[in-house]
Structure formats: C-alpha cells, structure tokens
C-alpha cells in the first residue's frame, strides 16, 4: 500500500470515532478558554496549556492553582493524583501501543480519557494501519481541545455577556464524571471514602491545604480496605 493510501484510510476510519469528542471538546474547550479570559489570563495561556497539558479536568483545576498562592509542589501532586488514572490506561495500552514506532511517544503523550477510550475499544478493520489509526484519533482530539481553548481565549475578550458563574462548569463536569463512575462501580465504598475523607480534611485543614492530606488518607483507606477484604 502506498503511504498516501495508508494515511487516507486511517483518517477515514478514525474521524467518525472522534465526532462526539469534537462536540464535547469544543464545548468544554471554549468554556475553558472563556474562563481563562474571565480570570484575567491572555489567550496565550489556554493555547499553550491545551497543547502541553492536554488533560481537560486538570486544566480547569490549573486555573484555580494559577490564581492562588505559588505552591508548585501542590500543583505537582494534584496533577499526579488527578491524572493517576492515566497510569491504569497506560497499563491497559501496553500491548496495543506496541510496535507503533516513533508514534508511540505521541500516543502516550496524548492519552487523555477520550483518546484512551476510543483506542482501547475501537474495532479497527484489517486493512487500516493500527498505529496510524490511533495516531489520528489522538491528533484529532488534541486539535479539538487546542482549537476550542484557543477560540475561547480569543473570543472571550470580545463577548460582553456576564460570565459570572461560568466556573460552575468544572463542578458540573466532576459531578457528571463522579456519577458515571458511580453507575459503573458495583461497590461504592471507594466513592464514599473519596467524599467523606475529603470533606473531613476540608473541615480540619481548610481550603488551602486539604488536598494533599486527603490524597494520603484516601490511599491509606483503600489500601486498608484491600487487606481487610483479603483477610475475610
């Protein structure tokens, strides 16, 4: 097969899978860009951050972090904990990303929830190159997020309507993600642990410092739960 033919087939096969992501990423990406603008950041911030971080929920958290006190260690550990789930995507993709050559680096770099979901579940036809299929899925998703965030960042300064309360999009997004996880899980104890431990830590350590103690406590509690479960 000619090189052009390989690309054409991979794009034709990959694009339809990414259409729902396009809608979602533009909605959230534009909102993110507008939020950055409303928070006083120039459009270069959402452009740069959507290209380099490419982890939607973390970028919303990053808006708050950038507006708070300088605390890089907390930013590092928050990003680590929020994106910890990627470790497990990685474990699932060890096999699928094998033998994709130089593309493997970009595939891992761009492994957000949505790229992972498609690349993990899609039925790729025999005559379509697997590596290029997954590459284009990742690239399209990355582009949707980048263009949405950029448009929001640029467009945000032109819009005149009152954006007060727009930051609720982050809360709404996490409530939905939490519910999706809840509906998927058979056992809700880890969800309860997450809510209860964080709430207690928030009351004890206050808004500024509660995240790291919460993370440690959650890890401890779910580790304890495992050993308790094994004893029984």
């Amino acid at each position: 097969m000619k090189k052009r033919e390989i690309h054409r087939k991979a794009i034709q096969c990959a694009f339809p899978y990414t259409i729902p992501i396009f809608a979602g990423f533009w909605f959230l990406g534009i909102t993110y860009g507008i939020l950055m603008d409303a928070s006083g950041f120039s459009c270069w911030y959402p452009m740069f951050m959507s290209l380099t971080i490419f982890a939607g929920s973390m970028e919303f958290v990053a808006v708050n972090l950038l507006m708070g006190h300088f605390f890089p260690l907390q930013a590092f550990f928050m990003a680590l904990m929020i994106n910890a789930r990627h470790i497990f995507y990685g474990i699932s993709m060890l096999e699928k990303y094998r033998g994709t050559g130089w593309k493997k680096f970009y595939l891992i770099f761009g492994m957000c929830d949505e790229s992972f979901s498609i690349n993990y579940t899609a039925d790729i036809p025999q005559d379509v190159d697997r590596g290029w299929f997954m590459f284009y899925v990742t690239l399209f998703n990355h582009f949707y997020w980048f263009s949405g965030a950029t448009l929001g960042g640029i467009f945000g300064s032109m819009i005149q309507f009152n954006t007060e309360g727009l930051d609720f999009v982050m809360t709404a997004m996490f409530v939905v993600i939490f519910m999706e996880q809840w509906l998927k899980d058979q056992d809700h104890s880890s969800a309860f642990i997450g809510l209860a431990v964080s709430l207690i830590c928030l009351l004890v350590f206050k808004a500024k410092y509660f995240i790291i103690p919460s993370m440690i406590m959650i890890l401890l509690m779910i580790t304890l739960k495992k050993y308790k479960g094994e004893k029984q």
Partner: peptide, 25 residues
C-alpha cells in the same frame, strides 16, 4: 496486584475528592 487493585478503586474516590474540591470555597 496492588497496582491493578488501585486502578479499579482509585477513580471512584478521586472523583469524589474532586467534587469536594470544587465546593471548597
């Protein structure tokens, strides 16, 4: 096994924490 276990149970707890994080103020 421990890493596999974390992969299964951590997401539920982390999303719970993020909901609380959003409401911290």
């Amino acid at each position: 096994d421990y890493i596999v276990y974390l992969g299964q149970v951590l997401p539920g707890a982390i999303f719970g924490m993020l909901v609380i994080y959003c409401l911290k103020d």
